[in-house]
Design a protein around this nucleic acid. Structure first.
Lengths: 143, 143
DNA sequence: ATGCAATTGCAAATCACTTGCAACTGAAGA
DNA sequence: TCTTCAGTTGCAAGTGATTTGCAATTGCAT
C-alpha cells in the first residue's frame, strides 16, 4: 500500500548499539521484518525465514523477537485469541483496528483519544506507562 | 470499597435461563464471583473455591468461566502478560487502568473516548463489534 | 588465524487452558 | 420419594504458544 513511504528501520545498527552479535539467523529475520507490510506472528516469520535459510529454528525466531522487543526495535501485539504479532517500532505511535473476519490490522491514530487517556489517568492519580487500544470490527458493506 | 453499591448479579437465574444445571461446583464458583470485588483469574477463583469445597477441580472453574462468558454473565480480560481475569458483566461498560506495580485494576469510563472510537471506525469503513482499552500505569506519588 | 563468550538448534519443559472419558448427580417425571 | 439419564464433574492427558537447558557452533575482538 504505502511501503515505499515507510523508511526501513536500521535494525543492524540497533543491534550493534545494544552490543549483541549480528548473526546469520538474525540478519535473515531482520530482513523479513524490514519489509513486512503486515503484522506477522512468530510462526509466520519462521515460515518466511525458512524460505531464505532452512536451518533457522523457531526458537531463534522467538528469541530474536524478544531481543528486538527488549531494545525497543519492534512492538508486540497480543490481539484477542491469537499468538503475538509483531511490527517495526519505527514510525509514530498508533493504535489498531482488527478486522474480525479477516484478521487484517488497520492502524489509526487519534491525538484526542491520547489526550483523554492521559487526562483520565491523571485524575485517577496515575501516569500512563503504555496503553492498549484495539477496536475489533467488521467491514461495513457499502450500500 | 463500594461493594455495597453494586447489586449482586443473580447468576443462578442466568444459568436457569440458559437451561443448564445448577450444580454444587457452579454454586460455589458463582458465590465467589458474586462477591469478588477484584478481577481474579481462574487460579485465584480455584483457590477460593477449594476453601469452600475441596473437591472442586480447576477444569470445572475453567469450564464454568467459559459457560458464564458464553451467556454473557461475566467478562474476560486478557491483560498483558498474564492469565485471563474475570469480572461480573453487571454494571455498565467501562475500561481498565492496570497498576503495573501491583496488578490492581481500576475501572473508568469515558463517553467521549467511546464516541471517538466509533467515529474512527466509521471513517475507516468499519463498525465496532467490541473494543479493548487498557491503560498501564504507575501510581503518581503525591507531592 | 585463535580463543571464547554469545548464539544456535533441538528437545524437553512450562503456562494457561482444553478435552476425553468413566463416574457422578441434578432435576424432570413415575 | 424414587428412577432415570443426559448434563456435569474430576482426573489425566492433550494443546498451542512460547521458553529453556544444553552441547555444538560461530561472530568478532585479539
Amino acid at each position: 500500500m504505502n511501503e515505499t513511504l515507510i523508511p526501513k528501520p536500521d535494525y543492524e545498527a540497533a543491534l550493534r548499539e545494544a552490543g549483541v552479535r549480528i548473526t546469520r539467523p538474525r540478519r535473515v529475520i531482520l530482513g523479513i521484518l524490514s519489509d513486512a507490510g503486515d503484522h506477522p506472528d512468530a510462526m509466520e516469520i519462521f515460515r518466511r525465514a525458512v524460505e531464505i535459510d532452512a536451518s533457522i529454528s523457531l526458537s531463534t525466531v522467538y528469541r530474536t523477537m524478544k531481543l528486538l522487543e527488549g531494545i525497543g526495535a519492534i512492538h508486540r501485539h497480543a490481539f484477542e485469541g491469537g499468538p503475538s504479532r509483531f511490527e517495526p517500532a519505527a514510525g509514530d505511535h498508533h493504535d489498531h483496528l482488527i478486522d474480525i473476519e479477516t484478521g487484517d490490522v488497520i492502524e489509526f491514530q487519534s491525538d484526542r483519544i491520547e489526550e483523554l487517556q492521559h487526562e483520565i489517568a491523571r485524575e485517577l492519580g496515575y501516569e500512563i506507562v503504555h496503553h492498549r487500544l484495539e477496536l475489533y470490527g467488521r467491514r461495513k458493506r457499502k450500500r
